[in-house]
Design a protein around this nucleic acid. Structure first.
Lengths: 222, 222
DNA sequence: CCGTGTGAAATCGTTCACAGCC
DNA sequence: GGCTGTGAACGATTTCACACGG
């Protein structure tokens, strides 16, 4: 499994820079907006301008994965959307479980953007007995100790951690034990996880701090 | 205003890589945990190991801003926390307003992590008359058209956009008109803003897509 | 003529390795 | 002995610039 080079897979996904993958998501989002607005095609220049990148950057990013454009024409929005979804892995649906049904957990359960991008929230779990046994926005809430059977029986692959910092590591451990292979962590701690479980952290306070630094030092796009 | 070099400000903040600033937030978070756990000092090696970085990276990052450690000893947690807060600009409190009191807006209003890191949510606004006039978790909710006076009278500097994608640009424009200087955007769109307004975007679906890619291509730390 | 895909060059960020200090 | 701060080497990513295709 070294460097094969089939028609649309020029490189091993592992050697694609992380930054490229995150821009891919932005391209996807913008392309969906463009398509919804009636544009059948676009170009690297246009796409880049709308997102604040150069045309060369857009072309180079896409070139990691194949040849998607037509010289003189640009990219067909519909085709490129399908291609990026296939690259990201969101050309199929993923089953997701949420741990923690506090304010944030509830907001995540109700967030429409997940469903539209390929994610099914199949269940939530919480320690608080006053909330378990009900449904929140159509998603059933179970006690924590049922996590194992939920993940196994429903084939859940991803877990969202939406509990306080103090219990986040335990929540993540439970998810790993239950068998999920990816974790999106909203608690303000760095999780310690086995290498075969992927994870991404989103820290709301941290994001505000980045904004602060940027404001305190004048301007984000100089 | 070229390269001055005062005692603890070796570089112009503008030429600090974005990645460095985002790691600074992680250092801060970890240092706070360390201090709370009773550690008075730490070292670049320890701090890095806990976060998945090398010791050299930690030292290099901090060296952008000054000399904070003692050879042979390491860093005093309390002092380094204060230094990083000063760099990020969170050594004072920032006033924040939230636009949009749906599921996500409510979760943000109730999020304890903001207050503990220096952010005061002073008000929220929404178009829905059935929610305005009340308080949510102690934060007053006003009609949208009062945004201007709220920002002006309370000296609000930052705005959080927690409305659907379709109205996010309008919400952001209103914030800019009202006078905020930084925007944290949770809507899945790229905002078009004047250069003198900083912004950071957090797209929940995008984060899940990154996770997907990582899972679909085996392992996050190979 | 416009726009892609891509070597080659330039830029940027990370790691190495070590002098100096506690 | 342990640890910081930092030039210098290295590796990675971005930008340039142009040959080729519709």
């Amino acid at each position: 499994m070294s460097n094969s080079r089939r028609k649309s897979e020029p490189v091993d996904p592992k050697e694609v820079p992380k930054a490229v993958v995150s821009r891919l998501s932005l391209y996807l989002r913008e392309l969906q907006h463009l398509l919804a607005a009636g544009h059948a095609t676009t170009s690297s220049g246009r796409l880049g301008r709308q997102l604040g990148f150069t045309d060369a950057q857009v072309r180079r990013d896409l070139a990691y994965f194949g040849h998607f454009g037509q010289p003189g024409v640009g990219y067909r929005c519909g085709e490129l959307i399908a291609a990026i979804r296939s690259i990201l892995g969101t050309d199929r649906r993923w089953r997701v479980v949420i741990v923690g049904v506090g304010n944030l957990g509830r907001a995540l359960i109700g967030y429409k953007g997940f469903g539209s991008q390929g994610f099914n929230i199949v269940a939530a779990v919480d320690v608080d007995p006053s909330i378990t046994g009900r449904e929140v926005e159509g998603v059933p809430v179970y006690p924590l100790d049922q996590l194992d059977s939920i993940v196994r029986e429903q084939g859940v692959e991803l877990g969202l951690v939406a509990v306080p910092a103090a219990t986040a590591q335990k929540a993540a451990d439970s998810l790993v034990t239950a068998g999920v292979t990816g974790i999106l962590n909203f608690a303000p701690v760095t999780l310690n996880l086995p290498d075969d479980v992927s994870h991404v952290g989103v820290d709301l306070a941290t994001e505000l701090e980045q904004l602060c630094f940027s404001v305190a030092n004048r301007g984000s796009q100089p």
